[in-house]
Amino acid sequence: MSFTQTLKDIEQNEWIDIPAGWLQGRTIFGGLVAGLLMHKAVTTINDPSQHLLSVSVTFVGPVQEAKAKMTAEILRQGKSVTTIEVRLWQDDAVQSILLASFGMQRESSIHVRNEIQAPDYPAVDELKILPKNAFAPQCFQQFELAWAEGHYPCSASDKPDFGGWFRFDPELHENRVMSVADLMILFDVWPPGVLPMFKSMLPASTLTWHVTYVHPIQHQIHDWFKYKVVTEYAGEGYATEYAHIWDADNRLIAISRQTVTVFA
């Protein structure tokens, strides 16, 4: 089953088939899981005037390439803001939970534009697109990444963090208008910020993920975006990091914060 067909099934059914080609080790890529949950939230609310404000995802357990049940509950629908919870179930257990707030734009006298400026990376055609080799997770095949700063994962670097350009692979994904579900999937393709410090291939996975959306998405899925991650703290088997995503015009789109489990 294709990714686009899975999205259509979410709109019509409670049970879906997780599409093939998205494995990350022995489980499904967390970005895809978050994107499926987000699509369920958007279609449940079904109100174009409600824009995503923020979302939190907890990856409770591993999601397998199999059938999954998705349930959604609108917790509160106020005059401006709607809060919704979506759960993904497999084997009669909750494996992932999304909690999101959508809201309508309101008039306000408060205006602050203290946004972090986009890094001045070289153009994509001046950089090398990372090869899709056998050592990369299966889900990596769905995207194109061009490293612009920092060290590669598992390079025994004495410093974490990196940044670069990224997008969906045009050879695998037909161009169309990007949704917030698409952006959730794309956003998560970068590995944890501490991975350059790894000396060998060892596990690291997101435990909790919070995203705040700054500017509405007005893009196609073939468009390039910039990404930069900063690790604030790592120790005792966990890491805390934040990241920003900008479009090609250096417009800040979203801010991410993750708690990562580290097995190195």
Rank of each mutant, 00 (worst) to 15 (best):
H222R: 03
G237V: 00
D125T: 10
R257W: 11
Q24T: 07
F263N: 13
F187I: 10
Q12S: 15
Y152N: 13
A93G: 08
S96C: 11
P19Y: 05
Q24N: 08
H151F: 15
G25Y: 07
A248G: 12
I110Q: 10
M104I: 14
V230D: 12
R176P: 08
P160N: 03
E65R: 13
Q50F: 12
Q95K: 13
D158M: 08
A146N: 03
P203L: 01
L145S: 01
Y227A: 03
Q258F: 12
R87Y: 08
E73L: 15
L52N: 01
K79V: 05
W165M: 02
R87V: 11
G25A: 10
D188C: 04
R26M: 13
Q77H: 14
T240Q: 14
A68R: 03
V189P: 07
L202G: 15
Q220L: 10
V57Q: 05
A156Y: 02
S155E: 07
L53E: 10
T4I: 15
R113P: 14
I217S: 04
K69Y: 09
S56K: 09
I255L: 09
N250V: 07
Q5T: 13
V94N: 10
I253T: 05
V63Q: 01
V112E: 08
D169T: 03
S96Q: 06
Q50G: 07
W165F: 07
D169I: 02
V230W: 13
K159H: 12
A123Q: 14
N250Q: 03
D158Y: 03
R167G: 03
N175L: 06
A134D: 15
T6P: 02
G78D: 10
D158Q: 11
Q105V: 11
G150K: 00
V260F: 09
A264R: 14
L36A: 06
P153N: 06
H210I: 11
Q64G: 10
K159F: 06
C154E: 15
V112M: 09
A100R: 04
T231W: 09
E14F: 10
H244M: 08
Y242K: 09
M70E: 00
